Amino acid sequence: MDILSEALASMRTGRPVSVRTTGHAPWAVGLPPVSGSGFHVVLSGSSWLTPLESPAEGEAARPVRLLEGDVVFLRDGCGAVLGDRPDTAPQEPREAEFAPGAPIGTVVVGEEGGERADLLCGYYHLDQARPHPLVSRLPRIVHLPAAGTRSPELAAAIGLLRSELDRPRMGSAGIVPALIDSLLLYVLRAWYEEQPTERARGWAAALSDQAVAPALTALHGDPARSWTVQELAARAGLSRAAFARRFTDLVGEPPMAYLTRWRMTTAARLLRESEETLAAVAARTGYGSEYAFAKAFKREYGQAPGGYRRELRAAA
């Protein structure tokens, strides 16, 4: 069971939205907040990104220097200004243009002649109302410099994106969206893997912990099972109390609380994406009756599962 893939799949509510942004110095463009998580990839040149909100209470929003090959991920889609310098006044971008068969649109800012930068900008539709802690406990701004990353896969994905966008060919309309979709996994995997082992805490440590990681895999792999803390502790070779403390310390909540969270997250995804009956969803998430499931779901989401499904479909 791939916990990262499962966690992201549970949050996705649509395909990514993206455009290729070309800036000619002096240039800057204001980017409004989005309902998901934003991202920017520098395909060529360089730029500055200035968040419109502080990354943490009491801290000032600091400009981030982006060089070719850099990636920045905005966890909760905060607004920002992107430009050639932090002090360049934002302009109104030209309307996005879509060439026939092109996988994404293009936006041009500034007048030709100035120093040029090309970026891929967009956002992922991720449910921010109930984000998985793998995402919600990331820094608000994740910056992965090309020069410092130890992820050849991320660098390769960016190189492939650059190639397909520079020279669209047969299949590009399918390849580019797939690469953008995969980019999120590469970004988050690179960030988690690059956390220093000796200082890693929280989920960065949980994903590699010899006791907690197998327990998370078990809970994700079979949420319908009647798991007990004792059973999970035995798998880890720890006492019940020692395992519960370790799990809570790294994951941020006790094992059974996390199991309930994952069951409800799985149920919401099934209601959103499948045609399974409420009784079938209840069985797949560990509830012996539709009534018990509906009661638990309403406690977590504030509405009955049937109403949740109807509301999503009415909005689609």
Score class of each variant (00 low, 15 high):
Leu52Glu: 03
Leu250Pro: 07
Val72Ala: 13
Gln303Leu: 15
Arg201Lys: 04
Pro196Lys: 00
Leu161Arg: 09
Arg130Gly: 03
Gly14Phe: 05
Tyr301His: 09
Ser54Pro: 15
Ser10Tyr: 05
Leu138Met: 08
Leu179His: 02
Asp166His: 09
Val42Asn: 13
Arg235Met: 05
Ala244Arg: 12
Tyr123Glu: 10
Glu6Arg: 13
Ser239Ile: 09
Gly286Ser: 04
Leu179Asp: 04
Met264Pro: 07
Ala244Gly: 12
Arg169Gly: 13
His24Asn: 12
Met256Gln: 09
Tyr123Ser: 13
Gly288Met: 03
Leu278Pro: 04
Leu271Val: 00
Ala206Asn: 01
Leu4Glu: 07
Ala218Gln: 04
Leu66Ala: 09
Ala156Met: 09
Glu300Thr: 13
Ala314Leu: 12
Val107Met: 06
Arg189Thr: 12
Ala279Pro: 01
Ala178Asp: 09
Trp48Cys: 06
Arg162Tyr: 10
Ala244Ser: 15
Gly113Thr: 01
Arg313Glu: 14
Leu219Glu: 02
Trp191Met: 01
Arg75Gly: 02
Met11His: 04
Ser46His: 14
Ser274Glu: 15
Glu253Lys: 00
Ser136Met: 03
Leu4Pro: 02
Gly114Asp: 11
Ala242Cys: 05
Ile158Arg: 02
Leu278Trp: 05
Thr21Pro: 02
Ala80His: 10
Ile175Asn: 03
Asp87Tyr: 13
Gly79Asp: 13
Val176Asp: 02
His24Val: 00
Gly58Val: 11
Ala241Glu: 15
Ala157Ile: 07
Gly58His: 08
Arg245Glu: 07
Leu183Gly: 05
Pro196Tyr: 02
Ala268Gly: 14
Leu270Asp: 00
Val81Ser: 05
Asp166Arg: 09
Gly23Cys: 03
Ala96Gly: 11
Ser274Gln: 11
Leu250Ser: 04
Asp76Trp: 07
Ile141Gly: 02
Asp2Thr: 02
Asp2Val: 06
Leu31Ser: 07
Gly105Leu: 09
Ala80Asp: 08
Leu165Gln: 03
Glu97Gly: 11
Pro131Val: 03
Glu53Lys: 10
Leu120Lys: 05
Tyr123Gln: 09
Glu273Thr: 15
Val41Thr: 12
Ala267Lys: 00
Val281Thr: 03
Asp209Cys: 10
Arg313Gly: 14
Asp127Ala: 11
Ala241Ile: 14
Leu183Pro: 01
Arg245Phe: 09
Tyr186Asp: 05
Cys121Ser: 14
